[in-house]
Design a protein around this nucleic acid. Structure first.
Lengths: 182, 182
DNA sequence: TATCTTTGTTTGGAGAGACTAACAAGGAGC
DNA sequence: GCTCCTTGTTAGTCTCTCCAAACAAAGATA
């Protein structure tokens, strides 16, 4: 133990990628009780050498305790970040699945990207929004059913599609390719 | 005109950064009628040499027409992407400002990151969601007022804050630093 | 103990996106 | 025409995240 004397590169803010690693480690720690390089690599869709070098980096920043060939542990600091990323992920996933009715797999991937884009305030606002929808008398569970119905019948999503034609060729490649990784 | 014979690197999907450049050029084109390297740089919070090299890249991909020292023009393809990014930006901004009541400046920055994270389906779902909120009899404008009230009085956001303590030191740096750029 | 397989590390390198410093064009003003 | 300032480009570098190839340790199995 003793998250001790290193903290060399405590400077410069964390990148989104670092946050992803910490979230992955946090998850694996709960699921498996020993965290292996191989498992981190698999979860993030990355090769093992990439993980090794990131672990060195996170170690220098005092976010994980990492010694060659040994199991990875989050420090207190790293655990704070990992847990927060997890929380963000869950909030956003819930919103995408329950409110917007996105399928779970897609929503999971998109939550993973959104979680780096939002400020604390906005994230909290999402939380409050979900609470409101579930708890407010006139906007409670039956409100969700109503939105369901709306999705199924009440509109024509044909407009705007000419605009999208050229865009789709360019963009949907990337989005689906990114999705495969997760 | 004639979006012609180049299209060298039409391969490999667009990166989020490229999408940002195309959106910026799209905007400037509407605002100013001549698009200058300097203005793109300013809008994206980047230096001019960075813009020059990206323009070469986008030119090879057939997304802009670009000749040294001359004004930048979007090709048809580039215009499609630019317009779509603009649309995404507006949809998300509207959601963040009108529903989640985020202040405009923050929302603008966050929309800019979110717009790369979402699939076409999810984006469309956001559009439908906004339409529902505005049009459905029982979830119309007064529903928004109700959420407003909810935000002001009905809950205690004190929980979860211990978790955030260590996280904030690490993370809020990056988020506010990123925000300064925009 | 010797060997084989799995796991992890090192090394070297690639590509995206950014920067600084130095140089080049284009337009004012005289 | 000749300076000067703004704008744009080139060249060289840096950091981040990733990879493949080669090597090294740990663990299983005979």
């Amino acid at each position: 133990m003793a998250s001790g004397a290193h903290e060399k590169t405590a400077s410069s803010p964390l990148t989104p990628v670092m946050e992803d690693y910490l979230e992955a480690i946090f998850d694996l720690d709960q699921e498996k009780k020993v965290v292996r390089v191989k498992d981190i690599a698999k979860r993030l869709g990355v090769k093992m050498p990439t993980v090794t070098s990131m672990l060195k980096n996170l170690n220098e920043r005092g976010l994980v305790n990492y010694e060659k060939y040994e199991y990875v542990e989050l420090t207190e600091k790293g655990l704070g970040v990992g847990a927060e990323m997890r929380r963000r992920h869950e909030v956003l996933l819930e919103f995408l699945v329950e409110i917007l009715k996105i399928d779970h797999a897609t929503a999971d991937g998109e939550a993973c990207k959104m979680e780096h884009a939002l400020s604390m305030t906005t994230l909290e606002r999402f939380v409050e929004f979900m609470a409101f929808i579930h708890r407010c008398p006139r906007a409670g569970e039956d409100w969700l059913d109503r939105f369901d119905q709306f999705l199924e019948c009440g509109h024509q999503p044909e407009a705007c599609k000419s605009n999208m034609a050229s865009f789709k060729c360019e963009l949907s490649d990337r989005i689906s390719r990114d999705a495969e990784k997760e």
